[in-house]
Computed example of a mutant assay.
Amino acid sequence: MAARILLYDDNEALRWSMESLIADHEDLDLLAAMPDAQNLAADLLVFNPDVVLMDIDMPGINGVEAVRLIRQTNENLPVIMLTVFDDNENIFNAICAGASGYILKRYASEEIPAAIRNVMSGGAPMTGSVARKVLQMVPVAKSEEQENYNLSKRETELLQLLVNGFSYKMIGFELNISIDTVRSHIKKIYDKLHVHSATEAVSLAIKKRII
């Protein structure tokens, strides 16, 4: 059964783009794309979504306020913030309000489908650069020893780019390698780190001081 998705964003071009993107995935179903969250409570009752994609900067009720409203009645509905903002204040406010994930719009075409599946499985998907900022707010114990994951020089280099928020295409351009080669390296990194997503890889890399 396809995951039922509700989108809120005041940018019409972005709504059309997301509709086209999600339509390409049989396991995802965009129920509706709303320009604002004015009728949020009624929308949730009518559509009963599995996941909500929420823009932060909207007229009337903004995305952070909308997440707070959702959490008043539903603590478990996954809400992924879809935004251009990667500053600490917006990230902090969204997470404190109860957001389940935080994806930057410039990476939406590459990250949103996987982010939806991730959050449906209980994950907290975040664009790499956002995950780094979140994790930097949490102090790392000085006594924690660095574990050897046997990453090659190229794999370590690629992992650093992931932590810096690079997309697969950007990594390929930076390292002058094909997207398929990037994917091959990423798979090997995931296997060595025992993770299943870029967010998990970035989180582990920072927590364990791998890079």
Rank of each mutant, 00 (worst) to 15 (best):
T156S: 13
E157Q: 15
L135Q: 05
E200C: 01
D86I: 00
L44F: 01
L204E: 01
I186E: 00
K153C: 06
A115Q: 12
S143V: 11
V119G: 04
S184W: 01
I80Q: 06
P125A: 07
P49F: 05
L7F: 00
N11A: 14
V138L: 14
A201Y: 06
T127R: 09
V140L: 11
R183Y: 08
L53Y: 10
K153S: 15
I171P: 00
I206H: 09
D36P: 05
L193Y: 05
D57T: 06
L69C: 01
L53T: 00
S129K: 06
K153F: 13
E200F: 03
M81C: 09
Q136N: 13
N150S: 13
S203H: 07
N148A: 12
Q38N: 05
N11L: 11
R106I: 03
I70Q: 05
E145Q: 14
K188E: 13
E174C: 10
E26F: 07
A201P: 08
Q136C: 04
I116P: 03
R132M: 13
L28F: 09
V79E: 00
T127K: 03
P139F: 08
A23T: 07
N62R: 07
E111Q: 15
I211Q: 00
D29G: 00
L31G: 03
A108C: 09
L175S: 10
A124K: 04
V79T: 06
A32D: 08
D180V: 11
P139Y: 02
E89H: 12
A2F: 09
D43G: 06
L104R: 08
E110F: 06
I103W: 05
A32Q: 00
D10F: 08
P113F: 03
R209G: 02
S197G: 13
L28K: 08
R71G: 06
N150T: 12
I186H: 04
